[in-house]
């Protein structure tokens, strides 16, 4: 449940973090001189962290009597999402399919 604090501390912290993550991502992508693959790994990870931030600090997935269900639900959805994205790209860029 929401902490009984008077000020929305976790929201402010979450907001600041997401601003920082966004700008770091922009910096890494456009100003740093490293290979494409490394950039993608870094900004991809930053995006995932930021999504997690929203999920836990703004949306409070774990809250309430169904918190556990919510977490399982999100985990399964993410599993399916990874299968769809990584699977499709893998299948359609291998072998004859690539041409």
């Amino acid at each position: 449940m929401e902490h009984k604090s008077k000020y929305p501390v976790s929201h402010v912290v979450g907001f600041l973090f997401s601003l920082i993550l966004t700008f770091v991502a922009v910096f890494v992508a456009l100003k740093m001189n490293v290979s494409y693959t490394i950039v993608m790994w870094i900004i991809g990870s930053l995006a995932i962290i930021q999504a997690g931030l929203q999920l836990f600090m703004f949306m409070h997935v774990t809250e309430g009597e169904d918190g556990k269900t919510n977490v399982i639900n999100m985990a399964y959805a993410v599993f399916v999402a990874i299968v769809i994205v990584a699977g499709s790209i893998w299948v359609l860029t291998s072998g004859h399919a690539a041409h």
Binding site: V61, G64, D66, I82
Partner: peptide, 28 residues
Amino acid sequence: NRLNILGFWIFLGAEIVLFATLFAVYGV
């Protein structure tokens, strides 16, 4: 209310899949 909130979370699971598919299409 608790039913509706849980139901909405599950709907969001479906939305994740929906956008993942669009991202997969974009990826390809």
